[in-house]
Simulated assay, not measured.
Amino acid sequence: MTGRTRLTTTETVRDERSWLFTVRDQYDELDEVILVPCEEERTDGGATAESDDSAADADPDDPGVEAWINRCTHEAQRLDRGFGAAMRDGQIICPKHGSMFDACSGYCDNGDAADTTLPSVEVAVEDGAVYLADDGYEFVHEGSIEGGGEEAGDGDESQDDDDDMPSSTSHIGF
């Protein structure tokens, strides 16, 4: 691994219930990632290999944290639109159709995104700090693509398509 970037603390992720940041992938494209608390022990084998590896190295005194690409697998709806992901009972809720993804495994067993799993991003937790540990991504800034620094307007209008926030067809009320 070439190096890690410190992102935030496990306490911040736990208190805010999600933490959004922007990365650049190997194709020089910007993407968003959400950190969410994972309260479960990782012994069920339901998580991705990347998640299992980072969980095995984690300090047992630190709460678990997982990182997922900030897109529903059904229609690429942003799960966190810049003000926190909707969470309930350890699940991330898609604001458009109400599909619920397990915060620890990324797996969805209901709604329009059923039988899919969110793409994971490898993170490491050490002494209460969360680090980006995935060589496939480079940290750009905290917050959404639109919300940070000079990267915010680099001409890719497709990133703004869901900012109009379509009316929800979810069966779940908040």
Rank of each mutant, 00 (worst) to 15 (best):
Pro63Ile: 10
Asn110Val: 11
Phe21Asn: 06
Ile145Asp: 03
Gly3Asp: 06
Asp80Asn: 03
Gln26Ser: 13
Gly173Met: 06
Ala47Thr: 04
Phe21Glu: 05
Ile92Tyr: 00
Val130Trp: 04
Tyr137Cys: 04
Ser167Thr: 10
Asp154Arg: 13
Val65Ala: 05
Glu41Gln: 13
Asp52Met: 14
Asp135Arg: 10
Val121Phe: 06
Pro166Phe: 14
Gly148His: 04
Pro166Gly: 09
Glu11Arg: 10
Val125Met: 04
Asn70Glu: 12
Ser105Tyr: 05
Pro60Trp: 04
Ala133Asn: 13
Glu32Asp: 03
Asp53Glu: 15
Glu50Leu: 13
Thr5Ile: 12
Asp80Thr: 03
Gln26Ala: 13
Gln26His: 11
Asp162Pro: 00
Asp52Trp: 00
Thr43Leu: 07
Gln159Cys: 02
Pro119Leu: 07
His74Glu: 05
Arg78Ser: 11
Ala85Thr: 04
Gln159Pro: 00
Gln159Ile: 11
Ala67Pro: 00
Glu50Val: 05
Asp15Val: 06
Gln26Thr: 11
His171Arg: 11
Ser144Asp: 06
Gly98Asn: 02
Cys104Tyr: 07
Gly90Val: 07
Gly64Leu: 08
Gly147Thr: 08
Val130Asp: 13
Phe83Gln: 08
Gln91Arg: 14
Ala76Gln: 12
Cys38Thr: 08
Gly111Leu: 07
Asp112Ala: 13
Gly155Arg: 01
Met87Cys: 14
Thr5Asn: 12
Ile172Phe: 07
Phe21Gly: 09
Tyr27Glu: 15
Thr116Ala: 06
Pro63Leu: 11
Val121Asn: 01
Gln26Leu: 12
Met165Leu: 12
Pro166Asp: 13
Glu11Gly: 03
Glu151Gln: 07
Tyr107Gly: 00
Ala47Glu: 15
Ser105Gln: 02
Ala58Ile: 01
Leu35Phe: 04
Cys108Met: 09
Ser120Asn: 14
Asp102Trp: 03
Phe139Ala: 06
Ala47Gly: 14
Phe83Gly: 08
Ser167Met: 09
Asp115His: 12
Phe21Val: 06
Val23Lys: 00
Thr22Ile: 03
His141Pro: 03
Thr10Ile: 08
Ser170Phe: 04
Pro119Cys: 01
Phe83Asp: 14
Pro37Asn: 07
Ile34Glu: 04
Thr8Leu: 10
Val123Thr: 14
Asp109Lys: 05
Glu75Leu: 15
Cys38Tyr: 13
Glu11Ala: 14
Asp62Gly: 03
Pro37Phe: 04
Ala113Pro: 01
Ala58Glu: 15
Asp31Leu: 02
Gly173Ala: 13
Phe101Tyr: 15
Asp156Phe: 07
Asp52Thr: 11
Glu142Cys: 04
Ser99Ile: 04
Asp31Asn: 01
Ser158Arg: 12
Ile145Phe: 02
Glu126Gly: 02
Gly84Asp: 05
Asp156Ile: 12
Gly143Gln: 10
Asp53Lys: 08
Asp161Ser: 11
Val13Met: 07
Ser51Leu: 14
Glu16Trp: 00
Glu39Ser: 09
Glu150Arg: 13
Ala55Ser: 12
Asp162Thr: 11
Gly90Asp: 09
Thr9Ile: 13
Gly46Tyr: 07
Ser120Glu: 14
Thr169Asn: 13
Phe139Asp: 06
Glu50His: 00
Asp164Ala: 15
Asp164Gln: 10
Gly82His: 04
Ala103Phe: 03
Ile145Leu: 06
Gln77Phe: 05
Gly143Trp: 07
Asp156Val: 14
Gly147Pro: 10
Tyr27Asp: 15
Thr9Asp: 14
Glu142Gly: 02
Ser51Ile: 15
Phe83Arg: 08
